[in-house]
C-alpha cells in the first residue's frame, strides 16, 4: 500500500476552520492535498449521518473542525457538535472504524498554521492505519 493516499473529508465551520483553511491557502502554507473541505455554517449543524456516510463512501477519515469553545459564532454550536462526535466515537469503532478516523478539532479563524499542521499530522497516521476497509466492500 505504498501508493495509498488517504482521503480526509473535513466538515469545517464557516467562521473558524473554513476561514483558517482559507488563511492557510492565502498564507501559502503547504499541507498534504488529501483533504476535501465541506463547508458548513457551524459544526453544530453536522448531522452524525454526514460522518457515517462519508466513512461508508470510503473516506479514510472525517475531520470535524470548528471554533474554539467560547468562540462559536452561534454561541454553543460546537458544544453540541462535541456530544455528537462523542456518540460517533463510541459507535463507529464497534464496526472496526479506527477511532482515529473521526477527529474533532477546534481551529480558530486565525489558525491557518494549525489547520495546515492538523492535516499534515493526520495524513501519515492514516497512511499507517491503511485504507478504510469499506473501499473493498460492495456496501453503502
Amino acid at each position: 500500500m505504498e501508493d495509498y493516499e488517504p482521503t480526509i473529508i473535513a466538515f469545517t465551520c464557516n467562521w473558524c476552520t473554513y476561514t483558517a483553511a482559507d488563511l492557510a491557502g492565502t498564507s501559502r502554507l503547504s499541507y498534504p492535498p488529501n483533504v476535501r473541505l465541506i463547508r458548513v455554517m457551524c459544526t453544530g449543524m453536522v448531522d452524525p449521518k454526514y460522518v457515517i456516510k462519508a466513512l461508508l463512501e470510503g473516506a479514510d477519515a472525517v475531520l470535524i473542525s470548528g471554533c474554539h469553545i467560547g468562540d462559536c459564532h452561534y454561541m454553543n454550536g460546537n458544544l453540541k457538535a462535541r456530544r455528537r462526535v462523542k456518540l460517533l466515537k463510541e459507535l463507529l469503532p464497534r464496526f472496526g472504524f479506527d477511532e482515529q478516523r473521526v477527529k474533532l478539532t477546534w481551529i480558530g479563524a486565525s489558525d491557518g498554521i494549525q489547520f495546515a499542521e492538523t492535516i499534515t499530522e493526520m495524513v501519515p497516521k492514516l497512511k499507517a492505519l491503511g485504507p478504510n476497509e469499506v473501499r473493498n466492500q460492495m456496501v453503502l
Binding site: 458548513v40 455554517m41 453544530g44 449543524m45 448531522d47 454550536g77 453540541k80 455528537r84
Partner: peptide
C-alpha cells in the same frame, strides 16, 4: 442559521 436543530 446555525443548524443546531438540523444537526440533531
Amino acid at each position: 442559521g446555525c443548524g443546531s436543530c438540523a444537526g440533531f
